[in-house]
Design a protein around this nucleic acid. Sequence first.
DNA 1: TTGAAAGCGGTACCAT
DNA 2: ATGGTACCGCTTTCAA
Lengths: 340, 340
Amino acid sequence: MSQTPRQSAERSVPTSADVARLAGVSRATVSYVLNDTASVRISEPTRRRVREAAEELGYVPHAAARSLRAGHTRIVLLPTAHVPIGPLYSRFINELQWALRRLDYTVVQHGSLGLDGDAAARAWAELRPVAVLSLGGIALTPQGVEVLKRSGAKAVITLGPQHVDGAHSLVVDQREIGSRAAEHLLERGYRRIGVIMPEEPGLDLFSEPRLAGARQTAEPAGATVRPLPLAYDEGAANALAARWRGLGLDAVYAYNDEYAMLLMRALQDTGIGIPDETAVIGADDLLLGRLLRPRLSTVRIDMVTGEHLAELVDRVVRDPGGAPERRDLMGAEAVRREST
Amino acid sequence: MSQTPRQSAERSVPTSADVARLAGVSRATVSYVLNDTASVRISEPTRRRVREAAEELGYVPHAAARSLRAGHTRIVLLPTAHVPIGPLYSRFINELQWALRRLDYTVVQHGSLGLDGDAAARAWAELRPVAVLSLGGIALTPQGVEVLKRSGAKAVITLGPQHVDGAHSLVVDQREIGSRAAEHLLERGYRRIGVIMPEEPGLDLFSEPRLAGARQTAEPAGATVRPLPLAYDEGAANALAARWRGLGLDAVYAYNDEYAMLLMRALQDTGIGIPDETAVIGADDLLLGRLLRPRLSTVRIDMVTGEHLAELVDRVVRDPGGAPERRDLMGAEAVRREST
DNA sequence: TTGAAAGCGGTACCAT
DNA sequence: ATGGTACCGCTTTCAA
């Protein structure tokens, strides 16, 4: 009774050598059996002995040792931005992770903690990822790409506003969204357009190009575009609403549906009629927009799905030389409801 | 011109041996210099030569080789549930990741893809994580914990509804939330309480205990509690609203603010007065609740922060024998606005 | 101050 | 059908 109750108290992690010893075979044989190596025939009794020994010891292979020997990993590195960005985006990331898991990759999220692009790339390269998938906002320079590729990355894929030299870069242009919003407002006859610019740090990566898109579309048509900074907070919205009439705007593109809801409420509380006095359009087509009164017009964004992107990663990993994808990654389309 | 333009075209990843060769020193010296090993003095000229050689070759150490040698990793494994669960939760996860990064851990998200608890634990153990942090909903059995600990995990921490044998488990009780909501409704004099149960798969992990909490509090006080399944979708909400009066309820706890908004809109469209005919309370204290009319009463949830949890992980890793944390991890408090 | 060498845990080639 | 063994890249005694 005073003895070790179970072998589970053993303090050492069993290795394949332990399994081999217990089964009375060599480490090679253990490896063959446990990996079902096709190129070698092992007798059924031996297989059983090995399996039982492994089971009994609770043997678990050591991923690092394995990939050291193999010379490559199945790690897909996902550099992560610090800011959490909306329900749409986090759903996308989640989807992506699961799709990658399903393809048997190990997903490593890796924030770069204020390291500059190249130092970050070096830190990532230490893990010898087979692929790096950089999703917007993360600096990745051509040199960084070089480092990663030299360290064995088969696929370096960026998803962002511009092409990155050396990487397989999917250009997703946020300007499209602002452009569709502006286009819609113009069609409805509005000419003095405000554009909400979230003050939350990190979002400028999205808001700036959206503003630019709105400008590109509106200004040539003779409309004016005015950026309006706004924090995601009731007080800020009320303050903006209080000076609204002085701004002389007849419409506003509110970055996304959440900011639109915030602003719309403040405007309504100030007695500003929507859409009569000011039209409001959001983006993302969230359910909440349909629940507002008036129902919120919005820009629906069709992003590439996580599944699709995971497949792309896999394809590039298998055939790094393949031609870069050139599909459109994002479609955007205005949806008229009642607020415009 | 037809030659290799830069050394970057070399196909092999430089190792510390390459650096040693170029610097004219041994691999040991390279290791000493690059790691600033304190226990050994290397002359300044040598240091420089090594550093320059490393720089020139673009040397990046191999994390797997290092941790194989070291016998341990800095990996914190985060088993991930498939379902994305609300803005609060994803913010929490994000915070946690960053806090762990700041403490120099490598965060690996790992979905278990339909493996059962023990098989999943085995898969996780392959990575030899120094810590495993299981956040609710992920099955982790006592045997799984054993496997992980034997594989070298210093900390196996679970955050969930119940204690897991062998793990350092932080019990966070979702019932508290339902209980606070019910308590608030009772205080305001309501007695026939509906509880919205999201139909989205995965959320039952949260909604069931919240319902149980509401029951525990309401029924002893002579109130009735009626669960009401609802999909996150306008049509479903309208259908529920259409049969609302037949249900004979005077109040409803709507799982969280988002479902509350959905339901409230449908009830209002049906001409049901809030709170006069039916009171509504949500949970999570999202901004959107304050933007509704009437303003939405809610249950504010004070979860442990990501930073705090990361510190706990670090503490347990450093001192695995330490006494289990016993702080309350979640506070919940009803916030009255206008909908109750 | 520096170098030689053992060894971490697997895998796969070459013998037997 | 199985075993011996070199090797993946790095760290860390131990000697010189």
